[in-house]
Design a protein around this nucleic acid. Structure first.
Lengths: 187, 187, 187, 187
DNA sequence: AATGAATGAGTGTTCATTCAT
DNA sequence: TATGAATGAACACTCATTCAT
């Protein structure tokens, strides 16, 4: 593993567990087993490193999008599967912690926001595609705006993950049951 | 206005626009027109100040809950009105910025999470109350779990506000149209 | 007990256990159950309080001197008794801790040194008096300079107390046996 | 001279003349001609620096011990010479000021006390060695406990130095005359 | 690409002291 | 006397970044 990757890994871990602004370049260098100075041979500065990490989810979004489209000949099933898989992905405590950091950062940094948005777009569009097919199949009400619905789906899954990670509750709800009730037409 | 209030105001403003960890105690003191040392006569430290700010929304939650319950004899209308009002409240850029900071903080601070959760609870329970009435009135499908639905409603409104504030989009959607389509039974 | 006494007590305790410069005026006020501002009604400032404490041993020195002179008709016994009593007095850990603080302070503050010296003088002179009588009685070699001997006696007892308090050793020596061997003529 | 040495020198000087707790890290950095931050590249913190200084006398103790043992074939002379040399060494005002600081610190810091004790041990043991030889030669009474005597000797010399430095007296006594009178057997 | 000493502004916090009440 | 809010300089320490090697 090259030093650059070691640094990215170390930064990911530190940022996740301590937050962007609670993590120092020294922390990262130490965790990566690399000298402080060397960090700057690979990244222009802390902000560049934050940017790199913030956009790391790229690959995952692409993968989810691909899998969705793959299953589009059975749209309802594809959506159901996606709900489950995405929920699992987004529910890991590490994922949640990092996500909150990224959102706070993105909210304050327009450049970052733009890139971040572009990433998400891929997944949203794949969702839209499958929703439209489900509507044609009569599995989702035709009156619903597919773009808005896609966005709502992602929001609901992500919010639920966030809440369950942060507020450890007595009875965690069955993940996406309600969502499916609301979205899919009843037999 | 007492100095304590001046400090809270200044902290609220600075935290909102720069983030908790990008704001120094000096920043706050200066913005409040107060000496640095005096900050510590009113708050035990920065964390205490962050906690105070993080829990400031208390009042608003209570107010929304009250208004909801007030209108419960016409549950559908009450919910609709709440959707609109809550969306407006939660959509102000300041509110969004601060909320992202708070969430990131809460995700890393169990004590804070607990208090924060307790606050939110009030609003959720008011929502549940009105949802149940709407179900009895046949305006919401009886099969939906009221607690989960209440939570989903808040999530959707908040997520939408967040997204619109962060990603300035071409066509901002009509706020809660989709939500109402999904939730309310069709005539 | 008046507030002034409460303050002195609190200062004595805090200075002893934390050192002059590690103790804040707040510490003292709190320990005394008094407001910070009130400290300044009773003492001009921290230095004045340090001075007060540093010279507190006054009374004890006077008492020891008095008892020594009282027993001077049996000089050897009086000296022996003094050795024991002074050793006990000076050996308490609190006494040692405070003494080291005072010495460090006195070493840097000529005014304080002068007052401190004056206090000690009383005891030294009482010792000299009894030593001279012991010499006349043939119990101490006449060749020894009484002033120097008095000083040496105090030094040895104090140093021993210091060492035993700071370096907890395996076998604490029988306190003043050696001192008596050296000083008193052998039968 | 490396920066580390410059820092140690500056700390030694500042600590001696102002005391540990009256000296700030900035003082030291400035006196060393070094940036504040760089202090922490060389020492973990102020305490580490205090520790380093407190144990600096190591070398001197070792040297005195060596010289003592060197002269042990003429024990009385060796002791006499040591008295004089040690008195000179320990009498410099700087030495006294620093010593009072160290003692106060050592009295409050068990870890430091231990290390400090170990240092002193070397010298005490060399002294014991020579005392025993002097006793065999009949120059010191055989009845005296050599360990206790060694300790007493160091105490007396150090106390005397302390007193002369702090209380500038009319007639400074001839340094170790009395000590020799007490210790050595008379022809 | 790699090191780690060096920088100096910046951090949260504490301090002795003052002062209006 | 007594209070405790108010002051602002000072404190130990950390920071992102640079740079000679």
């Amino acid at each position: 593993m090259g030093n650059r990757e070691k640094i990215v890994d170390a930064a990911l871990h530190s940022f996740t567990h301590k937050g962007f602004h609670q993590t120092s370049m020294r922390d990262i260098a130490q965790a990566a087993g690399v000298s402080v100075g060397n960090l700057y041979n690979h990244f222009a500065g802390k902000d560049a490193l934050i940017g790199e990490i913030a956009l790391l989810e790229n690959a995952f979004f692409t993968e989810f999008a691909a899998r969705l489209v793959e299953g589009k000949h059975r749209p309802r099933q594809a959506l159901s599967d996606f709900f489950t898989a995405y929920h699992v992905f987004v529910s890991s405590p590490d994922s949640v912690q990092l996500a909150t950091e990224i959102v706070a950062e993105v909210a304050r940094n327009a450049t970052l926001a733009e890139k971040f948005d572009a990433n998400q777009q891929q997944l949203t569009e794949a969702l839209v595609q499958v929703i439209v097919l489900a509507q044609r199949a009569g599995e989702i009400a035709a009156a619903l705006n597919p773009h808005e619905l896609a966005q709502l789906i992602l929001d609901v899954i992500e919010s639920q993950a966030l809440r369950q990670a942060i507020f450890p509750r007595k009875a965690p709800t069955v993940a996406n049951h309600l969502l499916e009730q609301l979205i899919f037409t009843q037999a």
